[in-house]
Design a protein around this nucleic acid. Structure first.
Lengths: 346, 346
DNA sequence: TGTCAACACGAAAACGTTTTCGTAGCACAT
DNA sequence: ATGTGCTACGAAAACGTTTTCGTGTTGACA
């Protein structure tokens, strides 16, 4: 077991000073051709690599990005990470991930753990509990300490930072408009409680689409599901709530669901009630995950382009980190959604 | 924007030495009650937090675990990460992830990038290309430098390190035995080429189950899919290959697929050929992802418990890191699989 | 008064780099 | 002999900690 070699050791072996070694390795013209060759050969032989931690301490830069997301076992979030990683890697950065599990406390702890020098900046999507409590002090404090943040998907406008969002309103509007032009007369929305920003925005898009087509929204067609039901463990109660929606609206012929799970569960209920998709009922979901693609029938859905969101977030953050002038100009980038038509609509 | 405060600044403000501040904050009895109070109050007021990088340099420990996996947009791998993160966090570690994208070169680069002081140890699953080329020098070198590695799922026995594996053979055997006892007479396996260790092992389990029940394996019932077809982009050709399998074996009545995608695609083909599941054809998959749970009919599958694999891997690695004696005793832990019976079998 | 602990603190090294600045040695011109 | 200007290198500081060791001051005690 040969440990990593350091500059000091090379210097001692070659009987020169540490500075000479350092310079020789960086091809400084200060050092004679002779010495340079000698040092480089020696370093190569012993497979010398500068110690990242020492460099980080010296440069006060870690070349590492912190990612804080609510969960990782989730198609959208893993796509985003994948996008971040790709760009980060290309630009010489590593990524370190923390999971909040939708908990405020874990979000705070994770951020504090990383903010003490471990990373140069954050890319994050806010936990539901945080959104609910509206306590954003950990974000403002981090930013105040000069550590940039890029938020994606679940953002809050009050915080001054870069943001990557999806045109949730427009995406939802397009989806619902599609249902309307496909002759749906009674379109329900299955969405989240309002404190989840994206749920609220998609609901807004739903309402706007109805209004544009002079359709009066009906309260009974709007199902705001309690967020606990999103977890895989509460599928049953989610199914019951949706089944109630169906039973209370006999003429239901279109559904817009704000996420994949709601859409798939709606399909399940429809099947149970012997409704034919898309003949009796057309369904559109949000987020283009594996479930939508492989469902039967394949689900028409609003794709969010998670990969692109991640890439853009990483770009924005790194640009910010490497910008010379310390101007605080924050962008909000909107990544366009795309309606992917499959077989759950006509 | 107030930057993070350091020991030196506190020392200057309070007109004491750096060492006094450091000791006071750690409640050393060397420091008088008075000074301690003063320093701690000041530190608290300015929200002092020790700089992680400086600590890492000093202690030569980063309290960070490196994870290298082939891809992250994948139910199994994200489950594993989730398990690692949970344990790591509880024990005061962070996780930093690198993606190999199944490429040998990216695996090597990622490991080199992290091995230079950024992390204390690795948890990884080997890229397919690496398995194919059988070039493992980056693993042995890392281990030789005293940095421990824990491999999971895709492992290679030649490397001396901790390993977490699934009882692939037994899991496959249980699945195929289930099909046999469900009266299947012509059971096919859809698997990978042999260099993917887990594919090979699951194939072995399939063969063992047949043998145990005195059934002669038929070459035409064994489909070894080229790994490129696993990507979501090549669904069509994957479907064609599987369709050929069906057409060449008219009496096919059972399928064991070594992963979720193969199983789902087989279901798709069956549907296309008007075969009824599970009456005409019974299917069992491997890996318990979302697709299996939400497929119609829901897919019977061999669950690998990705979360548990991750947890165990993290435990093993951290135990190793924190062990005093430098004994190199490596464990191979087998995580039991579980056959989750759903509706694709009788 | 002198000695000795106990107390409370500071100086400095160490972790592994990079970089600034100083300078010894030499050649050359004056 | 003096001055000038290179060349090639070394010393030391700095990044932010922790820790070992040394030391000045105090009070108790003989």
């Amino acid at each position: 077991m040969k440990k990593r070699i350091t500059l000091k050791q090379i210097a001692r072996e070659l009987d020169v000073s540490i500075s000479t070694v350092s310079k020789a390795l960086r091809n400084s013209i200060e050092i004679s051709e002779d010495t340079r060759q000698k040092v480089q050969a020696f370093a190569k032989f012993y497979n010398y690599r500068p110690n990242n931690i020492a460099l980080s301490l010296k440069n006060r830069k870690t070349k590492t990005i912190g990612i804080i997301i609510p969960e990782i076992v989730h198609h959208f979030f893993s796509k985003v990470i994948s996008g971040i990683e790709a760009v980060a890697n290309k630009r010489g950065y590593n990524v370190i991930v923390g999971l909040s599990n939708e908990s405020f406390a874990k979000e705070v702890i994770n951020m504090e753990m990383l903010a003490n020098g471990s990373i140069d900046g954050f890319i994050l999507s806010i936990a539901k509990e945080t959104l609910q409590q509206q306590d954003y002090h950990h974000f403002t404090e981090t930013i105040n300490q000069g550590m940039p943040i890029v938020m994606f998907d679940r953002v809050v406008n009050a915080i001054k930072c870069d943001k990557i969002i999806v045109d949730d309103v427009l995406g939802a509007k397009k989806a619902v408009s599609k249902l309307i032009s496909n002759d749906c007369k009674n379109i329900a929305i299955i969405t989240t409680k309002d404190y989840v920003s994206v749920g609220k925005l998609r609901t807004q898009g739903y309402l706007e689409a109805l209004e544009e087509h002079k359709i009066n929204p009906k309260a009974s067609l709007i199902l705001k599901v309690d967020d606990e039901l999103l977890s895989e463990d509460h599928l049953d109660s989610l199914e019951k709530e949706i089944e109630n929606l169906f039973r209370n609206n006999k003429k239901l012929d279109g559904i817009f669901a704000v996420n994949e799970l709601y859409a798939i569960t709606a399909m399940k209920v429809a099947r149970k009630l012997k409704m034919n998709i898309p003949d009796d009922l057309q369904i559109i979901g949000f987020t283009d995950g594996v479930l939508s693609k492989h469902a039967v029938p394949a689900l028409t859905t609003v794709s969010q382009h998670g990969q692109k969101i991640g890439e853009k977030a990483a770009e924005l953050l790194i640009n910010n980190l490497e910008r010379e002038d310390e101007e605080d100009i924050y962008e909000t980038v909107v990544i366009e959604t795309e309606l992917i038509e499959r077989n759950s609509t006509k």
